[in-house]
């Protein structure tokens, strides 16, 4: 699974453009947070393949997940 994270969340994927992990069985987003060590409270929006999903959604190994923090703005 490819995980992209932005802003303050990027540090949790090693400050890389994306992190690749193996997810042999489908898991929920909340389980993903715990697997990767991302504090849930910092995540505002989760997207699967470019579409927003809820944190209880189930995801698979071939999904691309984007994690977006809160936007205060410009």
């Amino acid at each position: 699974m490819k995980i992209k994270a932005y802003g303050i969340l990027k540090q949790y994927i090693g400050d890389k453009d994306y992190l690749k992990i193996d997810v042999p069985e489908p898991i929920t987003i909340v389980e993903l947070f715990s697997k990767v060590g991302i504090p849930e409270k910092y995540v505002f929006v989760v997207e699967k393949n470019g579409k927003a999903i809820t944190k209880d959604s189930v995801i698979n190994d071939n999904d691309e997940i984007s994690l977006i923090p809160f936007i205060s703005g410009g």
Binding site: K4, Y6, G7, I8, P39, K41, Y42, F44, E47, S66, I68, P69, F70, I71, S72, G73, G74
Partner: peptide, 23 residues
């Protein structure tokens, strides 16, 4: 305690610049 506070303080209002470009 708000999750946006640390990012706002550390990086300012342009905190989401990279995301605006890439995503």
């Amino acid at each position: 305690e708000h999750p946006a506070t640390k990012a706002d303080m550390d990086y300012g209002s342009g905190e989401f610049y990279d995301w605006m470009n890439r995503e």
